[in-house]
Write a protein that binds this DNA or RNA. Structure first.
Lengths: 212, 212
DNA sequence: TAAAAAAAAGGGTTATTACCCCTTTTTGAA
DNA sequence: TTCAAAAAGGGGTAATAACCCTTTTTTTTA
């Protein structure tokens, strides 16, 4: 019995091409394809056709790969997700893996590597390229031994950032230029892999840096 | 013995004019004047010349009237603050009063009213114009009888706003246009008198609308 | 004391936010 | 059934935020 694969990608051409490759593999066959995460979740719920493995694009309209994977992992923990993306940045890779993906491939992956990845995910439970492994190791040193450590000034900045003050106002309070304050913001965002202040406030409250 | 007054305003002309008026009052005399809040706090700490009443501008560089009043109220609760501003908007008035101001006058106040206000603040503890009283009454109905009530959709919006999602992403999640989502934001900000999402996140966590 | 790290700040760009205005459609109650 | 909210959304704009990259000065430490 072949493993069943679902391809989720908003680019019709690409998803068909990938589907074609998969059909060519000895051990795999395509169950169906979807144009976005919502379509996948709906299809699984409606038809109960549950794939063994999902080849998931990360950037899709309606419901993106990260959110879809989270949802899927919650409702169907046995379905393996193998991420397939053009993006290679650390943040995205980590988010996808944290969401439950078993592997992360670039879209320019060779046929042979795709097959290898699919097989390893089904048999070993994961498949990681060197790039992804490095990201994992780096993130590990952030969360275990090294922990995330803020400098004095960064800590002060975080506390001010947990108010309604603009960066200009924070700069006035700290007797610095706004550019310096924005520098602290960038450093803190990088350390915590954040996109905006909303995330910082939640982090600060969670970690009792700021008590509301 | 006359009551001592300190005038804090970044406009030299205006602070001198006000100083002149105060000097003309039977019961008051000017102790000194300052160009911003920081200067006032420094002067009080350095010289220990503590005024009975401070005529405080709201919009000043370095340290504005709201923050200065908060600080002053914490360290010297006996010093009365009478706010003097060109701004007449609800948010500013409320912030100034919450910070501890005993009254709030427009800068185009007449000499006789200024004297009356100073006297009443010293003798009755407060002086409020009709405008300010209305703002107080309105804010009261928000915090006691009426309470702040959010509609269903506003609640959902608030929960999404407590993530790193942009409004565009929230709109996609809620199957609405960004304009509608921005409408919810405006409504919520108005109800809570907020300036930005940072304040909303803190409010939501404080009030257990969102648990991080 | 030379090299490295941290702190401060500037320049520039684009996206997002916050804040107005105002219109249409839907819905609910009088 | 009509009147009034509520819900959804459009247009425009200025300020702010986020994201780059670079430079100078100060502090640390190897």
């Amino acid at each position: 019995m072949k493993y069943s694969v679902v391809v989720v990608d908003d680019h019709n051409l690409l998803s068909q091409a990938i589907g074609g490759l998969v059909e060519g593999f000895e051990e795999f066959s395509v169950l169906y394809t979807c144009k976005n995460g919502q379509e996948l979740l709906d299809k699984i719920n409606d038809t109960k056709k549950i794939p063994d493995i999902v080849l998931m694009d990360v950037n899709m309209p309606i419901l993106n790969g990260i959110e879809t994977t989270q949802q899927l992992y919650k409702d169907y923990p046995d379905i393996k997700v193998l991420a397939l993306s053009i993006e290679e940045d650390e943040k995205t890779i980590l988010k996808m893996l944290r969401a439950g993906a078993k592997g992360y491939l670039m879209k320019d992956v060779k046929k042979s590597e795709l097959e290898k990845a699919l097989l390893e995910v089904m048999e070993k439970g994961f498949y990681h390229t060197n790039t992804v492994t490095k990201v994992l190791v780096d993130s590990l040193s952030d969360s275990e031994e090294n922990k995330i450590v803020f400098k004095e000034r960064e800590m002060i900045f975080i506390k001010y950032a947990c108010t309604e003050m603009t960066y200009r106002e924070i700069a006035e309070k700290m007797f610095l230029s706004t550019k310096t304050v924005e520098g602290y913001r960038d450093a803190v965002f990088e350390k915590l892999k954040l996109r905006n202040r909303t995330g910082l406030v939640i982090y600060a409250i969670k970690n009792k840096i700021f008590i509301p």
